[in-house]
Structures are given as C-alpha cells and as structure tokens.
C-alpha cells in the first residue's frame, strides 16, 4: 500500500530475530512475569471460592464486576501510555471525576448527548495537554500528569463548588447504572467492548504498532521517520477517552458524582496494568492482560473486604504487589540480557 505499511513491515521484520533470542534465553521467570497473571488469578479465585465465606455468591460476583468496570476501563486505556514507555497517567483521577460530574451536572440540565459532548471535549483537552507536554516538549510524564491532576481537580472543585451531584431518579444514567443482563451489569459489557476495541487498535493498526515500537526503542522509531510526538499525543488521548467512559460508568453506577470520587484510580489502574504483565519499561504488554490484572486487583480487594481486612492493609498489600510484580519483570529482563 503506502509508505507506512512498508515501514511497518520492515520494522516488524527487524524486531523478529531479537524477539526470538530473548524468548529463548529468559525461560521460566520471564514466563511467570508475562503469563503469571493467568495462574495468580485462577489460584486466587479458587482459594477464595472455597475459603472465603460469601465470595462465591451471585450478588458478590455482580458487585465485583460493578466495581471492576470503572477501574478496568481506566486501566485498559492507560495501558497505551504505559506501553509507549511513558510510565503512567496520574491525571486519570481528575479525568474520571471531571467526566462523572459533567455527565450528571450537565446531563441533568441539557440531556445526556450534550453532557457526552462536553465530557469528551474535556477529555480531548486533557489528552492534548498531557500528550503535547510529554510528546512535543519531552517533559517527564509523571510530573506533567501530576500537574494536570491538580489543575483539573482544582478547576473541577471550583466550578462544582465541591458539591455532590445526583442524577435524576429514573434518568438515563440511573437506568444504565442499574441495567443488567442476567447477573452481569451493563458496565461489564462496556468494559469488554472497550477492551476489544483497544486491543484491536493496539495489535492490528499502524497506530498501535507505533505505540509499541516507541516503547521498545524511541530513537529508532523516530529515525524511521515516524512522527513520534504525535503517537504520544495519541496514546494520551486514548487514555483520556477511556477515563471519560469510566467516569460515565462510575457515575451511572451510583447515580452520584463528586470531585473526590475517583481517588486512588491512578494507582489501582497502574497496579492492574503491571500485574497483568505489561512492562513499565514500555514496549511489552497487552490490553487483554490488563483486563486480567483488573480482575485480579478487584477480586483481591473483594476478598480483603469480605475477610474484614481494613483499608490500610489493602493499600499496603497493593503497594507490595506492585513492587513484587515489577521486580519479577525486571529480573526476567536481566536474565534475558545475559
């Protein structure tokens, strides 16, 4: 076809031999780092369904799905930023809250369509500001998104007055939040749909390929003639759109929204991504694995709640799990280099 396809093919060919060598040498540790999530998740669910009282009930599983959906949507979107080697997007906290408040505050007044337009306009701003600062200005993603988090949350709190917004009873938000197919809430289907879309975008399109190759080798990608800055903006835009969708789902679930509603989303989403086996060094990972990571984090959280372990221990556990998962990733890489 055009120049881009040949470029893509050439780069794919160039990566092939390297991949083979790495795969041969890393062995078990690398396998665990990349695929361990399947086993961890299975073991966790098995143990929980036998040992934890009330885990295997239908209501509990539905509640796990309900809670997993917003975090999951954020996480699959943020996977793009992580794969592109830009660490993470802390500002998803602000993005989810902004979207949630807009969907309820604007939606109550002017209807859902206008609210959706406004929310996606806001996410466009977030994505472009983050992406331009990180891509074009080559600024550190952690610091940039830390700054935009506070800018966004501050503006949101200023304009919303810090108040809680309730959706109209029996409004479209409420109806969506309560909609179910059997025991499975509608939000789960949104999560699955966005996962499939983003997975196809990552594995089957030029854009997805460029995001990955940027994560593998930033310089080589640029020297190959790719407009890498634009790729970064794209990755942040994907994250921002996903976060907006998450804000919608989250606000619909409880039919309320407040500027503090999404506290901790950034870290929990990152934990899910890392546990899913996406490398924080960029270049390696998949959206589908992130979905498994999300399930792991949600199930673990649910178990800790059911067993009656306090919030503090949950955070402690999540922090330690992040460190362990990254350690595993690093060690497998080190062995691969030898």
């Amino acid at each position: 076809m055009d120049k881009k396809t040949t470029l893509t093919q050439q780069m794919a060919v160039a990566q092939e031999p390297e991949k083979a060598i790495v795969e041969r040498k890393t062995g078990a540790l690398s396998w665990v780092a990349q695929n361990g999530i399947f086993i961890f998740l299975a073991v966790l669910i098995l143990v929980a369904s036998f040992a934890v009282n009330g885990f295997a009930s239908l209501e509990n599983l539905t509640s796990i799905l309900n809670r997993a959906a917003p975090i999951g949507i954020v996480a699959v979107g943020m996977t793009y930023v992580v794969i592109s080697g830009n660490y993470l997007d802390l500002s998803v906290v602000a993005q989810v809250a902004t979207a949630g408040v807009i969907f309820l505050a604007v939606g109550n007044e002017y209807g859902l369509f206008v609210a959706a337009l406004a929310a996606f306009a806001a996410s466009l701003v977030y994505g472009i500001v983050n992406g331009v600062a990180v891509g074009y200005f080559k600024a550190n993603a952690v610091i940039v998104t830390l700054a935009t988090t506070y800018i966004g949350l501050g503006l949101l709190r200023f304009f919303s007055g810090g108040s809680i917004f309730f959706g109209n009873p029996d409004g479209p938000m409420e109806q969506f939040g309560q909609a179910k197919l059997g025991p499975i809430p509608a939000s789960t289907f949104v999560l699955l749909a966005i996962t499939i879309v983003l997975s196809i975008l990552l594995t089957r399109t030029n854009f997805g390929f460029l995001v990955k190759s940027f994560g593998v080798n930033e310089k080589a990608t640029r020297l190959a003639g790719v407009n890498t800055d634009r790729v970064i903006v794209g990755a942040f835009l994907v994250t921002a759109f996903a976060a907006t969708l998450a804000g919608f789902v989250f606000a619909a679930y409880s039919n309320t929204a407040v500027s503090t509603m999404s506290q901790g989303f950034d870290f929990r989403a990152l934990a899910a991504i890392i546990i899913g086996g996406t490398s924080v060094f960029g270049g390696r990972g998949s959206v589908l694995r992130t979905l498994l990571g999300v399930m792991f984090v949600s199930v673990l959280n649910n178990i800790l709640v059911l067993v009656g372990i306090s919030f503090g221990y949950q955070q402690l556990a999540l922090g330690i799990i992040i460190l362990l998962a990254v350690t595993l990733d690093v060690l497998s890489r080190k062995l691969g280099e030898k």
Partner: peptide, 14 residues
C-alpha cells in the same frame, strides 16, 4: 510509587 502506596497503607494501619 509502590512505597507511596504501601506507606500510606501503613499510616492507616498504624
């Protein structure tokens, strides 16, 4: 970041 998370958990626990 992992430590940030773990320590804030520790602060809540303590």
């Amino acid at each position: 970041l992992g430590m940030l998370f773990a320590l804030s958990g520790l602060a809540f626990v303590l």
